[in-house]
Design a protein around this nucleic acid. Sequence first.
DNA 1: GTACATCTGTAGCGCTCGTTACAGAACCTA
DNA 2: TAGGTTCTGTAACGAGCGCTACAGATGTAC
Lengths: 195, 195
Amino acid sequence: MATMGRPREFDTEKALDKALDVFWRHGYEGASISELTQAMGISPPSLYAAFGNKEKLFHSALDRYAEVRKQVWTELMNEPTARKMMERLFDRVIEFYVDESNPNCCMLVKLSTAESDKVLAEHLCAKRAEAETMLVERFSKARADGELPDDVAPVDLAGYFMTVLDGLSVRASAGAKRDELHKVATLAMRGWPGK
Amino acid sequence: MATMGRPREFDTEKALDKALDVFWRHGYEGASISELTQAMGISPPSLYAAFGNKEKLFHSALDRYAEVRKQVWTELMNEPTARKMMERLFDRVIEFYVDESNPNCCMLVKLSTAESDKVLAEHLCAKRAEAETMLVERFSKARADGELPDDVAPVDLAGYFMTVLDGLSVRASAGAKRDELHKVATLAMRGWPGK
DNA sequence: GTACATCTGTAGCGCTCGTTACAGAACCTA
DNA sequence: TAGGTTCTGTAACGAGCGCTACAGATGTAC
């Protein structure tokens, strides 16, 4: 049999995107149900029927954010050299941070420092670790290829660049312009292992 | 005449320190009056009589935080070379971030990304800028002394190291250990202008 | 002692929060 | 058409929020 009962009148994916935007800007506790429902264009009972409750909606939005980011990063990992990958990653991330159509920061960075709830913090931390793992693996490959020397651990290098990317998010949310962020990235690349 | 009326039964400075700790951990909106009064050991009317309201209390706590930090930084600026200063600054900041007696982050970094209120954000941004200005001035002096080459702008170098320090705060609040943070600092110093 | 000033805790204000009970509307099956 | 199922908006629940009116306690000034 097909779906019974009155059909849903809104697109759950589009509604989730709207919810993601609200959480991104105001955090979990800072986002109220009334603001969420208004942005999503639905009423509270529709939200609860479709997404469970506020916390489950947040987890769904967080998964969506991480999924989109992973797609972008995965494509960048295919650059021929790790160095070229890192340069392009900086460019992409900076453009993302200064894009006026979304909050000028990484959602994971912003919320991982802001939210005190343990379950939420662990979910945020896990998604952040995913990105770092991608860097570690790419740097490991670069070392195997002979692009990186043996005296620099891939995990340390990934930790360093993730730290700079996190810092860029902080500065972008404080209003830093594209040029400033690019100058930081240029100086950060001087830490690249050389001869 | 001396102070008239019933004397205050608590130490305003100690109470402010307790309030600072609560704001530091939970942010402005996340800190409730009930939690603040409990930590400060006073009742709501005492808080309002002594500090005005929640927002004014926050500004006072923020000023206190920035004042303490400025003292530490000022002493470090007297290192003979800018490079030595930066190395010691990294050490001090990392020890500060991993200190278990306070939240594992920079309050200004944590709250500048979290709070959406405009007045609060501007106050936080101003205090963050103070620290960066100290670095700019120290690097300018280093350039005049011949320690730094002319092809690297002090403002860019300061922006880079502030970005790393901000990133270290993000990682420390995510649970990074002392060793990880030190490795990041070591790699970050490779961006130091050299021959 | 009396009057005044200031601090103290209790108890409550109006408001918003996350969540849900309820009734009506819109679809399916038969 | 009749009955069952699920979505819809309205309206309200208890709880916690920032804040304060109030009365009592405790100091100084005269």
